[in-house]
């Protein structure tokens, strides 16, 4: 049976494996025909959404991997606004509003409120959490 899944990512890339596992899980779920209702990035997970990461060439680029998967599968990648502002992840509007000289949100990601996580819990058939 095909289900709607919500994904919660609590850690940033590279320090923890959480984002890698979430990415492989999401890909596998899509291949099985399930719908990914939303991927919500919370806590340090918001660090998956900066386009300023420059990992070494022989390492995976998780931000790019998420952005490409989002484009291909029309994923809704949501970065928590409160967590993002604490950690310096800003979209164009937020950067302007706070007088910062640049924004850094990666393609395919959007910044929104915690209500988006609660909504994922309500709408999705299952919520799967990846963290530390």
């Amino acid at each position: 049976m095909e289900l709607k899944l919500g994904i919660l990512v609590n850690e940033g890339p590279y320090t923890h494996q959480a984002s890698d596992t979430a990415y492989h899980f999401t890909k596998a779920a899509l291949e099985k025909g399930h719908e990914i209702f939303r991927v919500f990035f919370y806590h340090d997970g918001v660090n998956n959404g900066t386009r300023f990461t420059v990992p070494p060439q022989d390492d995976r680029n998780l931000q790019k991997a998420w952005s490409e998967l989002a484009a291909k599968a029309k994923l809704d990648l949501v970065v928590c606004i409160a967590a993002a502002q604490r950690r310096g992840i800003l979209d164009t509007g937020e950067a302007k509003r706070h007088g910062k000289d640049s924004d850094n949100l990666a393609p395919g990601f959007r910044i929104s409120g915690l209500g988006q996580l609660v909504e994922a819990g309500i709408v999705a058939d299952r919520l799967v959490t990846f963290g530390d």
């Binding site: 919370y42 806590h43 409160a82 609660v118």
Partner: peptide, 19 residues
């Protein structure tokens, strides 16, 4: 760690969704 605080932030938001 920040988990306890940010968990409480979700709890407060979820109150508005009447679950």
């Amino acid at each position: 760690t920040i988990y306890a605080l940010e968990s409480l932030e979700v709890v407060l938001i979820s109150a508005a969704f009447e679950q």
